[in-house]
Amino acid sequence: MDRRNYLKSVLALIGLGIGSFSLVKWFKQTTPKFVVTNRDWEKRRSLITELAEVIIPTTETPGAKEAGVGNYIISVMSKCYDQSQQSAFISGLDDVDHFTKSQFGRLFMDCDASSRYDAVQHFSYSLVESSPLLLKIKNKLFGKSFFFMLRELTVEGYCTSQLGSTRALTYDPVPGAYEACISLSEHQTSWATK
């Protein structure tokens, strides 16, 4: 990317910041609102599990739920993320329930598949995805959004799980000699590890 495009992106971001991301909200996101405890995670374990399943559903290969992604997200969130990220994540989860309550009159867990899909769609729209650079800058300035963290961790948890690695991806623990150029066969999935 040249300098001009870079500047354009930065300007666009500033515009975006004024438009949709007030300083108040930023402050709210980067300051822990409350101390997140294990109980907070426990209460939301099934919600997280089901959200992950909407992001990576069961198809001809296992989905996030069967792969145990919900537990992975909670382990990583509670041990590897700081309190402000954790509380932003918990707030995000609660926002999901608020949303489904106002739209469909019930909690996410009580929604049918199509309402769950609509709810996740709503939150995925709040993610700026037009440019990877914009997203990167936004993540840096404002912290990762709830949905971004959720999706990133869902993919990570799924692709490093035993089911995801061996059934959806192709896991090759001891490859032998490196083959630099092979034809991609039809339906070939990615290598599970780099």
Binding site: P57, L135, E152
Partner: peptide, 20 residues
């Protein structure tokens, strides 16, 4: 997948297909 979890749009069946 590690790059795509950040760069690919959306979620659901098509997203999964792209990620893997």
């Amino acid at each position: 997948w590690i790059d795509k979890s950040r760069s690919v749009h959306g979620f659901g069946k098509d997203f999964k297909e792209q990620v893997i």
